[in-house]
Structures are given as structure tokens and as C-alpha cells.
Amino acid sequence: MMKKTVVVALGGNALLRRGEPLEADIQRENIKIAVESIAEIAQHYNVVLVHGNGPQVGLLALQGLEYTKVNPYPLDVLGSETQGMIGYMLMQEFKNRLPELDVSCLLTQMTVDPNDPAFSDPTKPIGPVYEEAEARQLAEKYNWIIKPDGQYFRRVVPSPQPTGIVESAAITKLIESGNLVICTGGGGIPVIKQNGKLTGIEAVIDKDMSAAYLARQLNADALLILTDADAVYTHWGTPQQQAIRATTPQQLSQYQFDEGSMGPKIAASCEFVKQGGQLVGIGALQDGLRILEGKAGTCITKD
């Protein structure tokens, strides 16, 4: 019997958690935990893995700003660096955990519309979290836009909608040949197509939107969004907060979700289901397989 295909979206904040030092060794330890959960899923599904890169791409940008003898590298180049860095750590850990599994990491470009309204209203948090006073100082120094992220503040950058996957055919071939494929990391490297040529653009695409786009392209059976929350909640962060266990896009449309965290996940999930996807699961990293079985997290279906 053919395995079903699941696109797994792994949050950058699951690899480097809020408030943790942005250290390589800490990221490796978190990746071990992630791989443990995803390896369990890979026993039952063909896994296509998309990872976030918010903390990592922000860190690389900060490091670049400190060395003033060269111009800072643009966000598309930094995004490609995070694909290589995180992809390498994930591939290595998967091979240590499941030596018999073929694992491939594909550097992936994602086309966007240069006229996307996101370029005039940045919402994607990147880099570390700051207390408000420090965030405002850095915003003044580096000409950043900052916005609240929970009780802290973070730099935000444009997050345009994906319009196409440049390496789509290669991803399909790798899946068909039995690979666990790591691709569209960090939402994909944002590029625009002009006069038949691809050019990078200053943005960080939301990895959940890209994962949902990829899942639709692949006709995947399910989309699984693993994050640092164990479910989707109404009234998050208040005494009235309540977990949503089983729901539909129509039911979710009556709630407001934070545009810097859960909002894009809900929007991506609803879009996947509306376009014919069977199931979206959202929840904690360690609950991955149980979410797909409807035993944990939040499950979103058409009806």
C-alpha cells in the first residue's frame, strides 16, 4: 500500500525557541527533538519538510551589520544561507536517526509578486526578541521596523505571498524516488521574474504559506504545522483562552489571530483546505503523529 504524503512545516522558533541564546549547539539539540518526532511520522507517511528561519535569518542580518567593511548581504542571500545551515543540521540528524532513509535537501527559490502589498506593510518577525526600549534603539540605529511579538518586540520585514516554486519538478522527482525531502526552507528564497530572468528581492516568505502552497502543488494528503503551541487557542494569553480541537475554515473565520504568529498559520491552513486539502493539523512538535491521528493539537477539515 502506497504511503500518504504529508507536508510538515517546522517553525524556526521550534529550532531556536523564544528567549534562548541563538547558539548553534542549542539549535542542534532542538533539531534532535524535532527529528525524533518527524522520524516517527516518516514511518507512516512520505514526509516533505519545510522549516522556518525567522530567528536564524535575523541573526545573520545582525552579524552582517556588525562588519562594516562590506555592504550587508540582502535578505534573499541570507535566506539561502539559512536553507543550507538548517538543512545540513536536519539531514545529518535524520541520517543518524534513520540511516536507511534517503534524505535530500534542496535549495529552493519561490517566486513572489513585486507589487504584493506586503512590501508596504512588513509583518514577518525575524531575529531575536528584545525588550521595547532596546528594540526602539536598534530600530533607530538600523532603520528597522519593529512590532510586538508577545510580551517582547522584534524586527519585522515584508512577507509576500508565494506565487510559484522554481524547483517544483525536482522536488516531485525526489519524492517519487523515495526521499524524505527538505525544501522551500524559510518559505523559500524570495525571487521575482522580470524579462525572463530571476532576481532576488528583500523579503522573508512565511514558511506556513509556502508549505500550504507546496502541499497544494503536490496534492499532499495532509499539511502538518508544528509549532511551540500545543494547539490553536481562542483568546490566547488571557484567562479565557481555550483550545480549539476540531474545526473548519468557516468556523475559524469568526476569530482574530495574531498576524505575527498564529495568523499566517490559520490563513495557510484554511487556504489549503479550501483548495481541496483533506486535513491540516496544528500543534506541538512532540505530538506530530498524534495530531495527524486526531488525538492532539488542532485539526482543520472542510466539514
Rank of each mutant, 00 (worst) to 15 (best):
V7Y: 02
A9P: 06
A9I: 04
G11T: 12
G12S: 09
D25H: 14
Q27K: 08
I31W: 04
I31G: 02
E40N: 14
A42G: 02
Y45R: 12
Y45A: 04
V47G: 05
L49M: 14
V50R: 03
L59V: 09
G64K: 00
L65A: 11
T68D: 10
Y73C: 01
D76S: 14
D76C: 09
G79M: 05
G79R: 00
T82G: 02
G87Q: 01
L90V: 10
Q92K: 10
F94A: 01
N96Q: 09
L98P: 00
L101H: 05
L106V: 09
M110F: 06
P117W: 11
P117M: 07
A118Y: 11
F119S: 11
G127D: 04
G127L: 06
G127H: 05
A135G: 10
R136T: 00
L138A: 00
Y142R: 01
N143K: 13
W144Q: 01
P148D: 09
Q151V: 13
Q151N: 10
Q151C: 00
Q151H: 03
F153M: 11
R155T: 02
V156F: 11
V157G: 05
P158S: 07
P160M: 02
P162E: 07
I171Q: 04
T172E: 15
L174Y: 06
E176A: 14
V181Y: 10
T184A: 15
T184Q: 06
G185T: 02
G186R: 03
V191L: 08
K193F: 05
Q194R: 14
G196C: 02
G196L: 04
T199P: 00
T199A: 11
G200V: 03
A203M: 03
V204C: 03
K207Y: 12
K207E: 02
D208H: 03
M209S: 12
A211V: 07
Y213K: 13
A215H: 02
Q217I: 12
Q217S: 12
N219V: 05
D221F: 15
A222R: 01
L223D: 08
L224D: 04
T227E: 06
T227Q: 07
A231E: 01
V232Y: 13
G237P: 05
T238V: 09
P239Q: 01
Q241F: 07
Q241N: 01
Q241M: 13
A246S: 14
T247Y: 07
Q250K: 15
F257P: 09
D258M: 04
D258V: 04
S261L: 14
G263L: 06
P264A: 08
I266T: 02
S269A: 15
C270Y: 13
F272I: 09
F272H: 07
G276H: 08
G277H: 12
Q278P: 07
V280R: 13
G281K: 11
I282W: 13
G283M: 12
L285W: 13
G288K: 09
G288N: 10
L289P: 08
L289S: 13
R290F: 06
G294S: 10
K295D: 10
C299F: 00
T301L: 07
K302C: 09
K302Q: 15
K302E: 12
